[in-house]
Amino acid sequence: MTIPSPSTGPSSSGDSLWSRIMAHDLTYLFFRSPLTVVAAILSVAIILAALLAPWLASMDPFDPAQVFLADANIPPVWQDGGDPRFVLGTDDQGRDLYSAILYGMRVSLVIGLSGVALAATIGITLGLVAGYLGGRVDAVIMRVADVQLTFPAILIALLVNGVVQALSKGTSRETWAFGVLILSIGLSFWVQYARTIRGSTLIEKNKDYIHAARLVGQPTPLILLRHLLPNVIGPVLVILTINLGLAIITEATLSFLGVGLPPTQPSLGTLISIGNKYLFSGDWWIVTFPGLTLAIFVLSINLIGDWLRDALNPRLQ
């Protein structure tokens, strides 16, 4: 009854057979999951649209010279009062919503990616160090991680935001909002990377190749980066994907709560926040289109992340 699986199989021949099948099958699995293919296409389309915003957009919503208050709150073209210049309508400052979404997507994406990159860098570094050095360093890092875990990301992000705001008295939000958002996300999400990496490091560090590297006298940072890192980085991929969705949500949430990007540099969250104010007066489009874009993008990323996790999980074949 023992049916060998890659992790528990008694026969080594079965092991390598299965791991080989798994390695070869990512592409196969991908195309067998139509939903994932759709999600991937949508993600790529949205990312491309964000990158190409300056060429696709009909105006630059960040440029005050192109924005006129007289154009405020115009509905989409297909509604009464629509204006062909503004396909999806305008917001309360007269910005073309379609253009604002493209640029806002860009902002969300840059902040999300940088935030996740920062979180991964912090987490991987601390995880490697904690796992490899062990002892007191390990204890301190993991304790901090424990404490950190008692606070949801959004709370940490809010706190970081509040603290920076207090320390930067007088300077305008525009100058630091970007950096603070990235910092907030980085500081909120590092723990998962650290824990994962530490776990694999604890196993890998006792293997022969690490002993060998140590014996020939290679410096610790080199051992960590050149030898250990490539062997423990695998599981990070899934976390990265899932975290990107979370990071974008976090940015949008902070901006919605009014502690993220100011209305002059609108991200999707900022636009939704603006739209929310006009929901009761019937100006549904300001909140709907940015909200829909955000939802579709995050959903696509999560679909890919979900699929990736299952595809890389040998237990689920």
């Binding site: 009854m1 023992t2 049916i3 026969s11 021949s13």
Partner: peptide
């Protein structure tokens, strides 16, 4: 030897083969 199919024989008898078996 391991992998010869001994366990599978037992599982087949009691009707507990795991899909896709």
């Amino acid at each position: 030897e391991s992998g010869a199919g001994k366990s599978l024989t037992g599982a087949a008898v009691i009707g507990l083969l795991e899909p896709p078996g």
